[in-house]
């Protein structure tokens, strides 16, 4: 029990962020017209690519001799970058088409 309360205590700011972000996420998306659902899904997909930051931190902290961790970390960085770059570019391509009129 104490450990749970302690954990909440040390992470209280993070927990606030989580709760507010949940409402914010729902609020922001709630008004999207169905026309934009696919680009939106793709854009959201690119945004959760922010996990790349975790991969970079993990990679940067590995001791240079630890090859197993280096390789796994490298893979994580590559996959995370794919998610970010691919996600944003695909979304941009979709939205570019919406802009062309006439």
């Amino acid at each position: 029990m104490d450990s749970i309360l302690g954990w909440i205590q040390t992470h209280i700011e993070m927990i606030y962020i989580v709760i507010l972000s949940i409402f914010l996420g729902i609020e922001v998306i709630g008004r999207v017209p169905s026309v934009l659902h696919t680009p939106l899904m793709s854009g959201a997909n690119a945004i959760h690519g922010v996990v790349i930051i975790g991969a970079i931190i993990v990679m940067g902290k590995v001791e240079p001799g630890n090859y197993a961790a280096l390789i796994i970390g490298f893979l994580a960085v590559v996959l995370g970058t794919l998610n970010v770059v691919g996600g944003f570019v695909v979304t941009d391509r979709m939205l570019e088409m919406f802009r062309k009129k006439k």
Binding site: F23, L24, G25, V28, I29, A44, V50, V51, I57
Partner: peptide
């Protein structure tokens, strides 16, 4: 991704992850 935010006390991972989590569910 938000779990990573907790792991590293990283606000941008947390906001990004949870935003997408909530929006994606909706």
């Amino acid at each position: 991704a938000a779990c990573g935010g907790f792991l590293y006390d990283n606000q941008v991972m947390l906001t990004g992850g949870i935003l997408v989590g909530a929006a994606g569910t909706l």
